[in-house]
Design a protein around this nucleic acid. Structure first.
Lengths: 192, 192
DNA sequence: GCTAGCATGTAAACGGTTACATGATTAG
DNA sequence: CTAATCATGTAACCGTTTACATGCTAGC
């Protein structure tokens, strides 16, 4: 997930690791803080895989400021990961939201829709904690007030998300039918 | 989080690892599946720490069925972790829900309230992705339809949870004022 | 001079994922 | 006899957390 967000942000524009970390903190640091011990090794892995490059700024400081650029290989990897997410990236709410944050980068509307549809399918099948050994569980039958709260909120959240997904899927289909141009992916010549 | 749920379920009653895994799957497997490679090492760690014991059933099978019992030390550890959760267990939605699933085990209403209050405090301060470099971000200003969806859903979810937390905190306070007895924690003599 | 923020990194320990390994029981 | 489910575990790999380490720059 960290890797995906790094590629996603660097696909927008080159930046320093420090600035990148701030964006990452805004996006996913809400839930768990982004640590340097995770970020810098992740950047090195991406660099070794050829997905990004860095250029030292000739300026002053002892830790030389490094500008990170995404490579073509990195852009391809980003699109691949957006178009073909793993199961956990669909089922885990936090991961799916990260996916959503960069889904506009996919140039193909049908690919975008496919991702949303996978999430909708997942949300449409009953969740584990909504049933006790197979049979559906009614909120009234739950004595524990905290577990009852869990169920109420989980149900409401799932319902809200399903509604949004259905609406958005409809809009995406209508738009394509009307022949509008997709927005979000880089136009040629936009970098540098 | 896995460790906490193991202690939580075993505090209810002794069971086999296999049955425990089913409960864990119902509770947290919704988001990410519970793997044996995570479960069995976790059980061994808890056993080494003295938080649980296992007894082989004299029956048949080649992999002898092991009944897992929580120890007094394990119960103490569970209460400690419920009463004094780490920051990430408050801020991460998934972790907080796991906490919630076992919060009734805390015998002290004020301790329960303190946990809910911490979550409420966290939800009441602005989230990272609701602001762009300090200034609040209006949903209208977001062009990207998927990021807009994220914001709408995140905001709705946070609002719903805040409402529930406030309501529940009020109820817990009223109850205590009226002198009702807390339910959920083990009554003396209840274990086998 | 000190503190806070900018800026980059490493190392040990920990825990989770994935794949492997074994074998019993039950239903078709 | 075969497949699914019950049942327990190990090992290699991978990524995250936590703590440590360094040094500049700006404001008080």
């Amino acid at each position: 997930m960290l890797t995906l967000s790094i590629l996603g942000f660097l696909a927008e524009r080159p930046m320093h690791a420090y600035e990148l970390r701030q964006h990452l903190t805004d996006l996913i640091g809400h839930n768990r803080p982004v640590s340097d011990g995770a970020l810098y090794p992740a950047l090195n892995r991406l660099r070794q895989a050829g997905h990004l490059e860095r250029q030292a700024e000739p300026g002053s400081g002892a830790p030389v400021r490094q500008v990170l650029h995404i490579t073509e290989s990195g852009r391809a990897e980003l699109l691949r990961r957006l178009a073909d997410p793993r199961t956990t990236e669909i089922t885990d709410g936090g991961s799916f939201f990260t996916l959503l944050a960069f889904l506009s980068r996919l140039p193909d509307r049908e690919q975008q829709r496919a991702v949303l549809r996978r999430r909708l399918d997942f949300l449409s099948q009953p969740a584990g904690f909504f049933s006790r050994s197979g049979s559906p569980l009614r909120i009234k039958d739950v004595d524990d007030p905290f577990r009852k709260g869990m169920l109420i909120m989980a149900r409401a959240t799932r319902q809200a998300e399903r509604t949004w997904l259905e609406e958005t899927l409809r809009e995406l289909t209508d738009e394509e039918g009307a022949g509008e141009t997709p927005q979000g992916a880089d136009r040629p010549g936009g970098s540098g």
